[in-house]
């Protein structure tokens, strides 16, 4: 464990806490894409298949349980909770996640480190995580008004993977044979997808104006 990875995990944890707080306290999910939340639940479900078979550390297991519980409860809130679901804008959140799931699954079948079910699922979860934010970014462009909590949520979600890139660089130079091209490239693609959001987020913060994405 290094400081970059710990910071990345804490930033990731903060993003789900910000989202859960928003939904739980103001009982609203306005501006949040259910499609992205469902994709994240699928990402964690396919990535943490080994949660009970491969014990790595208490920290690792606890964080996996937190991410699984939070992502599924957010999906539950947005689909089932009688008040929260009313603020879900299903007419705007129309991104068909099958267009993301199928290509990632096919790609994982061809590009993986070992052709086993767990490894292919793990690789699928990496590719899917890289693109899971797309429905959310599309929704932000459409709804245009981005409330602070949603902006902070997306920012933290992007920042965590950027910190992971620093972690991979650190591990590459400090651990012999630590090479995971698949992880690195999908993590880089994921972070680049946030690049334009970061640009507008930083500018809105610098000029102290409300965050607006161009149409």
């Amino acid at each position: 464990m290094n400081i970059f990875r710990l910071a990345g995990d804490m930033t990731h944890l903060m993003s789900v806490i910000v989202l859960l707080l928003k939904i739980h306290t103001i009982k609203s999910c306005a501006g949040i894409s259910l499609k992205t939340q469902e994709l994240y639940a699928l990402v964690f479900a396919t990535r943490y298949l080994d949660i009970f078979t491969d014990f790595i550390s208490l920290y690792n297991t606890i964080m996996k349980l937190i991410f699984l519980a939070s992502s599924f409860s957010i999906v539950w809130y947005m689909r089932q909770h009688k008040i929260v679901r009313r603020s879900y804008d299903k007419d705007q959140d129309t991104f068909r996640h099958l267009f993301l799931i199928l290509p990632c699954l096919l790609l994982a079948l061809f590009i993986n480190e070992k052709f086993t079910f767990k490894e292919v699922m793990w690789t699928f979860s990496l590719f899917l995580e890289a693109v899971a934010i797309l429905p959310q970014l599309v929704l932000l462009q459409r709804t245009r008004n981005i409330d602070n909590l949603t902006g902070q949520y997306v920012f933290l979600l992007g920042a965590y993977r950027a910190l992971y890139i620093l972690n991979w660089i650190y591990r590459y130079f400090t651990e012999p044979h630590y090479v995971h091209w698949i992880t690195w490239i999908s993590g880089l693609v994921q972070t680049l997808l946030y690049a334009d959001f970061f640009y507008y987020y930083f500018n809105s913060w610098k000029n102290n104006v409300k965050l607006q994405l161009p149409a």
Binding site: D9, D54, I56, S57, E113
Partner: peptide, 10 residues
């Protein structure tokens, strides 16, 4: 040998 430590990240 590929230890399970390969996937020691979240």
């Amino acid at each position: 040998a590929r230890s399970h430590r390969d996937h020691d990240e979240l």
